[in-house]
Amino acid sequence: MLNFTIRRLLFTIPTLLLISLIIFLLLDLAPNDPTGNLPLTIPAEVREQIRKALGLGDPIYVRYYRWLVQFFVNEPLNLLGEWTHSCIGDCENRLRVTSWATRSPVVDLIAERMPQTLWVVGLSYVVGILIAVPIGVYSAYRQYSWFDQLGTFISMIGFSVPTFFTGVLMIVIFSVQLRWFPSIYDTTLRVTDWSSLGAQIRQMAMPVFVLALYNAAQISRFMRASMLDNLNQDYVRTARAKGLNERVVVLVHVLRNSLIPVVTVIALGVPQVFGGAIITEQVFKVNGLGQLLIIGIQGADIPLVQTLTFIFAVLIVLFNLIADILYGILDPRIRYD
């Protein structure tokens, strides 16, 4: 297993380099312009000077090399320096990956966005899983019962109705009509006491619910299918023949085996959490990583988009590996090496 992991990790290096190059080329070839969103009152010569100041005048391989050095050398060195509170190398003049729109280091922007994305999107993922697993189990156990039919219906809704619709619908109902929850997320809120905790919960309620519904819809379907696969297996009959309690049969025998594929699906979904939920973040003004990405794309902020998408690529590759390893750990039939 260790050898497998190391081998896979080594393989990821060329993969990721290739991905970074592809992202870079795609962004570069895409027809967009960082000055495109500026008011037309700014004359063309000034735009040209802005582009030059951003380094767009250099040939593409220079810019790619610069990004590589900034991302793989300068940023880690900077992080290390911050952790150890020391200055490594030429820390004063070290060039970091800098956003064109904000002129600030991209990594700092990402770090600033991380809390709300993890709180809202991450929590919704956890809530989604916590809802989905019992629903999936019970739906499969009572296949075609009214509960199962209802579950199927709700997950169909959760799956097919886009979050920009459910989100706005919830805002109209709960913010405009009932006034229970705020429609705009306050990212500056610090939880220090009970009332601020209450405010935090209120503002998280709707985005978390909308996303959790979506996640739960997906995962509960997987859970149900996997449970159905296992429920008719002979070993379940064996377990019943052993005279085991029905609860033990379902929760210990069937559930544990059914969770194997579900856990890998869940692991593969984790990078999406970090990717944020572009639409939901926009609807509720959560302004996490998803919103950062979409603003970067709209403003042709190439360093920001490049770095964010590359980090997502790293996470996806990483969680693919984690899913594989988890599979190996959970399923004794699978052994690497």
Binding site: D234, Y235, T238, A241, R256, N257, I260, L330, D331
Partner: peptide
């Protein structure tokens, strides 16, 4: 009961 398929009738985990 002793089952036909010994593989399937034993919980793999």
């Amino acid at each position: 009961m002793i089952f036909q398929d010994p593989q399937a009738s034993l919980n793999p985990r």
